[in-house]
């Protein structure tokens, strides 16, 4: 034993390039094959070295040349261990990309929305809200990208998965639809107009008679002070929305100018509503104070206003983006 380790030690001290090279190759290949590969590689290097020395090269430069010809030991080790030299290969790349894009589209906006809402409810300042929403969205995106990629890289390296998964076989059924959903069909127009009419009716009813019956009399849901100017303005905007839907239907599709117009309408409605909300002029305090129990009423009403505000902003942003996507798709 002692002698053996002495020998190892002596070899360590004047370890040759070849020893170091063989060690570098074999340290990352499975233990079972390690000795076998090392012995074979040593013999092969010695053979090549002999050939060069026989041809008149100096032993030292010949050794260097042989090893440099064999190249990066990690590359050679990957060849022996049959490991891919890429993170995600062509077989899985498309699935990886599709999943990642889908996840980013769904999770990042939801997370950003949630963080902004949470920060606002916690009473953070506007700067802090923007900073933590941006920071949160970026870190969520990074996490999604990292973990998705990690899972796919592991699948790429697992023998079972490599053998079984010949990727998901593609069939004609997976072709993107020939005429993409344009949002400009008759059904779309009618749905929008029916919805707008119902909403307008509810608004007028709420303002004139009250929508909820509580404690012996009818109460309005929205602040009664909105009548007539604010409520009237909203009715006008709703009428314009209805006309816009008809124009889109007649036009057969959303165009970028129509989408811009829709965005302007959304911005006008959302900003007015949120401003009214911040002035405590949108919701009817009388109704809410009745519904919410006692002591916490002020507080809960504040939270409710924030949530309503975020709801309004969220719907406006969603509708705007959705419309632009439809316009782009049906170009």
């Amino acid at each position: 034993m002692a002698r053996n380790s002495d020998l190892d030690h002596a070899r360590d001290v004047r370890s040759t390039f070849t020893d170091r090279y063989v060690h570098a190759v074999t340290r990352t290949i499975p233990e079972k094959q390690r000795d076998d590969v090392a012995a074979e590689l040593r013999a092969a290097i010695a053979d090549q070295l002999d050939a060069r020395v026989d041809a008149g090269e100096l032993p030292e430069s010949a050794e260097r040349a042989v090893l440099e010809e064999l190249g990066d030991p990690d590359r050679l080790a990957a060849g022996y261990a049959d490991r891919p030299l890429y993170l995600i290969g062509p077989r899985l790349y498309l699935e990886w990309k599709r999943l990642l894009v889908l996840l980013l589209w769904i999770v990042v906006p939801l997370a950003a929305f949630g963080i902004a809402l949470g920060q606002t409810l916690a009473g953070a300042g506007i700067g802090e809200i923007i900073a933590s929403t941006l920071g949160g969205a970026i870190s969520v995106a990074l996490h999604l990208a990292f973990w998705t990629t990690l899972v796919f890289a592991v699948i790429e390296r697992s023998d079972d998965a490599r053998a079984s998964a010949k990727a998901v076989a593609w069939s004609v059924d997976r072709l993107p639809p020939e005429s993409p959903y344009t949002g400009a069909r008759f059904v779309d127009m009618m749905t929008s107009i029916v919805f707008l009419t119902v909403a307008a009716g509810a608004l007028v009813w709420d303002q004139l008679l009250g929508l909820v019956y509580l404690e012996g009399h009818w109460m309005s849901f929205l602040s009664p002070d909105l009548w007539p100017w604010w409520a009237g303005g909203l009715l006008v905007v709703m009428a314009i929305e209805a006309v816009l839907q008809v124009v889109v239907y007649v036009n057969q599709r959303w165009t970028i100018p129509l989408a811009v117009f829709n965005a302007v309408l959304n911005v006008v409605v959302a900003i007015s509503a949120i401003w009214l909300l911040s002035q405590q002029m949108l919701l009817n305090p009388e109704f809410w104070m009745t519904v919410i129990p006692e002591a916490d009423a002020e507080n809960v009403f504040g939270i409710l206003s924030v949530i309503t505000g975020f709801g309004i902003a969220g719907v406006a942003v969603w509708d705007t983006i959705d419309t632009f996507l439809k316009a782009r798709r049906s170009r």
């Binding site: 074979e40 010809e69 064999l70 050679l76 060849g79």
Partner: peptide
């Protein structure tokens, strides 16, 4: 090249 042949032999053996 040597560095493709040696791993190839192992693969064919496997």
């Amino acid at each position: 090249d040597a560095n493709t042949l040696y791993p190839l032999l192992r693969r064919l053996e496997k």
